[in-house]
Every structure is written in C-alpha cells, then in structure tokens.
Amino acid sequence: MTEGVERKSSRASAGGAKRKKKNQLPIAVVIFVVIAGIGVWLGFRGENLLLYWLLGLAFGFVLQRSRFCFTASMRDPYLTKSTSITRAVLIAFALTSIGFTAIKYGYFANGLAIPGQSFVATISIATAVGAIMFGIGMVIAGGCASGTLMRVGEGFWMQVISLFFFIVGSLWGAHDFGWWKRTFMLKGFEVFLPDYLGWLGGLGANLLIIAVIYVIAHKWEKKHSNELSH
C-alpha cells in the first residue's frame, strides 16, 4: 500500500492546487430557513400540508444520508452480485410490516374499518406487465420514483429529465388505465394475508418470506465473493 499512498499524495497536491473546496454549510443554513419558511406558510394553509411536508423532508433526508436505493436492491444482486442494500430493504420491510400490522390490528380490534387497505392492490396481468416495465425503467434511468426525487435534490440534471418523463408516462398510464381495468384488473384478485392466515399468521408468513429471501441474498453474495477471491 505504500506505493498507493505515495501516488495519492503526489496527485492530491497537484489537484489541491487548482481546486479549492468551498464550504457549503452557509448555503445549507439558507436552505434550512427557506424550508422552515415554507413549513410555516403551509402550516397556516392547513395542518395536513405541513405534516406531509415534514414527512417528505424526513424521507428525503434519510434516503440521501444513507444512500438508500430501492433500484439498487433489485439490480445489484444480478449486476454486481452485491446484496447489502437488498438485505437492508428487507429489514425495512420486516420492521415496517410489524408497525403497520399493529396499527391495522388496533383498528380491527376496536371494531373500526382497517385503514390503508387500498394498498392491498389487485393482482392481475397488469401487475406483472407494469412491474416489469417499472423494473426496466428504473435501472436504465438510474433511480425509481423516490430515488429520482432524491437525485433531483442532489443536482442531477439527468434525473430532472427522467422525472419529467415519469410524469408523462404516468399520464399516459392513467389515460390507458380504463382499458387495463376492463381487460385484466376486473379478472384479478386481492390477497390480504391476515384474511387467510389470521393476524399473527399473516404477519408471520410475511416475516418468514422476508427471512428466507434474506438468507438467499446473503448466500448468493457469499458464493460470488468466494468465486472471485481465489
């Protein structure tokens, strides 16, 4: 490594002379003030708007800080044989499903309508076609919906274009939605796991699937790193 260090220092001195790092913290402070200002304005318009604004800020901050990427979780196991993001996504699935199930069960146990059931979506050919399209799109565009928004915030012009065409594509999809509904979705079905397995069974099955995929992901990465290292 001595050699590498030497090279590094010689290059760094050459590069350091022509470039001077600016400190962006003062700009961050300005942005914080603007964000807070928008928050106050939204708060006067409606509490709900402020809540959503805060949630979005939290999601954006966390996604950027941890470089979390749902696209990579699906792409890297195939492309680079790395599953560290995949496994992190699985952990998120597990934790969130425990929390969601608790909230849903709380409503159910009190005899209230279970919230958020519109996210138990209809499964049909449209799901398969749409998911494949989405998978192709996110890999070539270098980011899914949340990832694209996050990268727009990081200053990627390419993602501004993909965001614009994401909107165009969404409108196109909405335009054709009636056809997909008549042709496929009406023949589809919904499965809310607790309807079939009970609350505990449903959550247990979900966690079991997550655990099995986690083990497969781990072994997959190990297998490939062994192949490369000898």
Partner: peptide
C-alpha cells in the same frame, strides 16, 4: 454520492486496498 459508497464497498469486498478522497464539494476520487 451513491457511487461514493458502493464502489469502495465492492472494492473492499474484493480484497483491494481502497481510499476515498473528497477532491471537491460533491466530487470524490
């Protein structure tokens, strides 16, 4: 910023020596 994380991670897994240097705001080597 994502490549700044996943490229070193990959290289370390291969057993290579890795160093990351911040050469400018938002730019790394």
């Amino acid at each position: 910023s994502c490549a700044m994380k996943n490229v070193p991670e990959w290289a370390r897994k291969q057993g290579y020596e890795v160093e990351v240097e911040e050469v400018d705001d938002g730019e790394w080597e």
